[in-house]
Simulated scan of single mutants.
Amino acid sequence: MNAILTLNSGSSSIKFSVYDQADEPEELIDGEVENLGPAARLLLKSKPAQTIEIGAADHTAALSAILKAVKPLLAGRQVVGVGHRIVHGGVEFKDPTILTDGVLQRLAALVPLAPLHQPHNLAGVAAAKAAFPDAVQIGCFDTAFHNGHPWVNDTFALPRHFYDEGVRRYGFHGLSYDYITGKLQQDWPDLPKCKTVIAHLGNGASMCAVQEGKSVGSTMGFSALDGLPMGTRCGQLDPGVLLYLMDKGLSAPEITSILYRESGLKGLSGMTHDMRTLLKSDAPEARQAIDYYVFRIRRELGAMTAVLGGIDALVFCGGIGENAVEIRARVLEGMGYLGLSVDPQANARNETIIGRDKALVLVIPTDEERVIARAVNHLT
């Protein structure tokens, strides 16, 4: 029997799954390493569920723990393909791609565009090649779903040669948007033809305007910093702030660390990037961080609606979008002018449909790993 392994390295966690290879891959093992840092833990969510305390772990140590845990659970299955979430595919990579040495070199050149993700994505490829040397390694790109944006949503008002050099709005979280769009087509076949905004709210966060199954606008741009505030990333920022920091004598690595690792919910609260902790806190700084987070989601919801010329459906996904009842309620408060409302009881129960006014409001758990598994299945 053959199996497919998927690795999805995020900024603060690594999700993984093992699938039986079939026409529609069947998930056998599901888990993640969460809280990367001083107190990481490995969660095996498949029955029987297990929690393994790892302790201090970076992405490399977490990948080792995952591979060590997975191998005994394969039950004689041979891993024939490993699928990797690769955050940045640049202009070149528009489809799932076999990760040859040459491809990996070209992807490594994109590390400056996604320094919080791309190095860990590529480290996962190296670890998987060592653990499963006979398996095909396949990259699936977060930027691919947004390829083909209208030009006005793809460019910056800079001298044109920068666009030709690749300085453009790529958009991210494409695997999540791909899954949600497919799920809408399956369960609500009329919605993919409509004007839909998908809010992927997690430690990384963005929103996407989708029409007829295609991305026509995204809150993220050239890098995974733009748009919404995130766990440790700043979101939209006046570029004059960067000039100010440079004038203060901060180096590029110092500015990078501030923008990617010290900002967002963590920076505003002075406490943590974890929304669960912030929602439980009575500290005024925690409430202010949440207030700003909600404000920016509401602002970008208006922007994505303007891109679409209206809205027929809003979908929440991602760890915060799927679980944070208060955040969803606050985002939707007073949004009747867009035809959006929330049923408090349905919202509190995390039901799939939490609002049904002129526009539909849905909560749909995303499944990036299944998108990756399908791609591996197709290429092996």
Rank of each mutant, 00 (worst) to 15 (best):
L242G: 05
E212P: 00
Q236W: 04
P229G: 05
C194A: 15
A205D: 14
L184N: 02
I180G: 02
D226M: 12
P192N: 03
L242H: 08
G204E: 12
I180H: 03
N203K: 03
D190G: 10
A199M: 07
Q236L: 10
F222N: 13
P189F: 08
Q211E: 11
P192F: 07
S206A: 11
T232H: 12
S215E: 05
S206G: 15
G182F: 01
L228P: 10
M246G: 03
Y244G: 01
L237W: 12
T219Q: 13
G182V: 00
M207S: 11
L225N: 11
S206V: 04
F172I: 03
G221I: 03
M230S: 13
S206N: 13
H200M: 04
D190C: 01
K195S: 14
P192H: 07
Q211T: 04
D247H: 15
L245E: 06
C234F: 02
D247K: 15
M246T: 12
V216D: 02
S215T: 10
L201F: 11
V216N: 05
G217N: 12
L242S: 05
Q185S: 13
G213S: 04
K193R: 14
G204T: 06
T219F: 06
D247F: 05
F172S: 06
F172Q: 05
V241Q: 09
S223L: 06
G231Y: 15
V197I: 12
Q236D: 15
L242M: 12
G227K: 08
S223I: 00
T219L: 09
T232P: 07
T219H: 09
W188T: 02
D187N: 10
S206T: 09
N203G: 15
S215I: 08
G174I: 02
M220D: 05
F222A: 15
Y177Q: 02
A199K: 04
S223V: 01
